[in-house]
Nucleic acid binder design. Structure first.
Lengths: 349, 349
DNA sequence: ATGAAAGCGCTAACAT
DNA sequence: ATGTTAGCGCTTTCAT
């Protein structure tokens, strides 16, 4: 007796296979599978049954070519290990899940030539829109974005000239606001700890906004420490040790992100430094990690999830309206959280 | 005087446009752009110049349909916010960057029906291979993977029946090994803190391996605490508080991941508990975060980056050889790191 | 080294 | 409600 087996196809199944198996024309099968147009309930059922039985998976390559529409949204972010960007992606996902659109992620590594390459690859799939982090791109990248004739949303940052729409916060203002809060609280000998600048424009703008606002309060940054490489707790400890050994009289440390701030906090607590009495601290981003620390570092929430949601919404709107961009500018306001490490302190006078 | 401007095309550029602009046949243009076949240096230069000047971006949709080959590798992981998976992705990227293959990421959210949907979407793009986390999938998912007739690599876990190839560690053994180390060190009143099981098979297997090995040493898990929802430091603190209030006589806590272990550690240190004298701790994963904590919790490194690399290598090999799978099984051995929180202790006798 | 023709699997547009 | 035809932009194959 021969054993009957589900045949394992060498050639992937096509609409035609479903058409033959169900005795319905290819066109009607296509309509059923896309739930477009009028199809009788009976044929619909027969088609669905056949498609399921055969294990048919539609070919979007062919579909996209025929319809000249591809429901992909390219998302280009600098890094996945930053913790911030996965949250932006979640926001994007949340919105796109209620649409036929699907995000496709590319990672630019804070490297403009690589960003250019990633975008080129992405555009070769003819996505319906692009969401891209930052406003600083190579001229070629900007040219491609403009020429693609699709909605483009630049996210995270507001300080610059967008190609089309933009959703984010002003990092200059964020830096300035933190500076003001620190100055108002009475801190005077302030150290800055951050990433090496050329890589990260947003960190640079925060630094600029920070120093600018301090200057207006008659304060100069007393010392700074820049690093390269991954930012983990250990890096924050090390940098904090270095800057405090060099400048033991600092009374505040402003870190360019929460992770290194958390490392610095742990270091200071171990050294028995009185926080925030002797030394205040602040980070940036508002990541979840901060919730479990012995003290909650001051930080500024940049509303990552909301940035993702708004950006995705703009793309979805454009696609729905059939327009290739609508030059929106959505300014989100970061929320300063003083936590336990940024407190008004007695004056020195 | 009219101002000459680069015309902004409504219709995306095609090979034909480049062909006309360069006076070279479409076919030859195609050859140049794909760097395949013999083309004279002169024509090549002309084509490249025209393509660049026009800002031509090839249409991979059309190319994929014509060639029946799409250089995408689908990667399906449960979550992006887990810290573990971005590292696996890095490993995959590292290898694929030296090939024409490109990863496309889908997130299954530890949810089999959703995983099924994500895979279906992915397969509709006819990728050259699939890398998917875990061995537990719905029957439909397994059927799709088999029917796709492309290389499939299941990653992270070894304990089960793979569809094709598999790269990972045995979580049962990992749990068992940690149990043995704890027992040998002399701990006897052991608590387990982990995720709610049905969601996460690998955590479940570790738990099974752990309790099994303890049983062989004549020890039972004295108490356990399960949680749902995100795992951050705060969750680790809260769970630790709960279990220690209920069972103050525990002498060891085994956490299902490093993040909650770190939270637990911070909690214990604040409470002034002597670690590892009174209480030992261990987590799981070997994440970078641990490096900056006041004490380094014991953990087990699961070699995430290497898992990604090996998996990608298998796909790349299959694509290169033109085979649709080769049933490899790569068993990685996790590394137990006792850190500062798992130390031999004096016997109670 | 280059070109011409056919067709990949699907859908738009137009029948019926 | 269903079917027919043409063609999306590229590559394969076969000429030259």
């Amino acid at each position: 007796m021969t054993i009957s087996q589900t045949p394992r196809p060498r050639r992937p199944l096509t609409l035609r296979d479903v058409s033959e198996a169900s005795g319905v024309s290819e066109m009607t099968v296509s309509r059923v599978l896309r739930q477009s147009g009028d199809v009788s309930e009976k044929t619909r059922a027969r088609v669905l049954e056949a498609a399921k039985r055969l294990g048919y998976v539609p070919n979007k390559i062919a579909g996209g070519l025929a319809s000249q529409r591809v429901n992909l949204v390219g998302v280009i972010i600098p890094s996945l290990s930053n913790l911030v960007f996965p949250e932006v992606l979640s926001g994007i996902n949340e919105v796109l899940e209620d649409t036929p659109l699907q995000p496709v992620v590319g990672v630019s590594r804070y490297d403009p030539p690589h960003e250019e390459k990633v975008l080129f690859e992405m555009l070769s799939w003819r996505p319906s829109g692009v969401i891209i982090a930052g406003l600083e791109h190579s001229e070629a990248t900007r040219a491609m974005l403009r020429a693609a004739d699709i909605p483009v949303v630049e996210i995270m940052d507001l300080d610059g000239e967008p190609v089309d729409s933009v959703v984010g916060i002003s990092h200059r203002r964020a830096g300035a606001e933190m500076a003001r809060a620190i100055a108002v609280a009475g801190y005077r000998r302030i150290g800055f700890l951050g990433t090496k600048m050329p890589m990260d424009h947003r960190a640079r703008k925060r630094f600029e906004g920070f120093t600018g606002a301090l200057a207006r309060a008659g304060i100069e940054v007393a010392d700074h420490e820049f690093y390269s490489g991954g930012s983990g707790l250990a890096k924050g400890r090390e940098m904090t040790r270095a800057i405090l050994e060099r400048s033991p009289d600092l009374d505040f440390l402003y870190y360019s992100n929460d992770m290194i701030a958390a490392g610095g906090l742990l270091y200071c607590l171990e050294k028995g430094i009185d926080i925030p009495g002797t030394l205040g601290l602040a980070g940036f981003n508002g990541i979840e990690l901060l919730d479990g620390l012995p003290l909650r570092p001051a930080t500024m929430d940049i509303r990552r999830r909301e940035i993702g949601r708004k950006a995705a919404q703009i793309i979805a709107d454009c696609v729905q309206k059939g327009v290739s961009g609508l030059g929106e500018r959505i300014a989100l306001v970061p929320r300063l959280d003083p936590g336990d490490t940024l407190r008004p302190r007695p004056h020195d006078t």
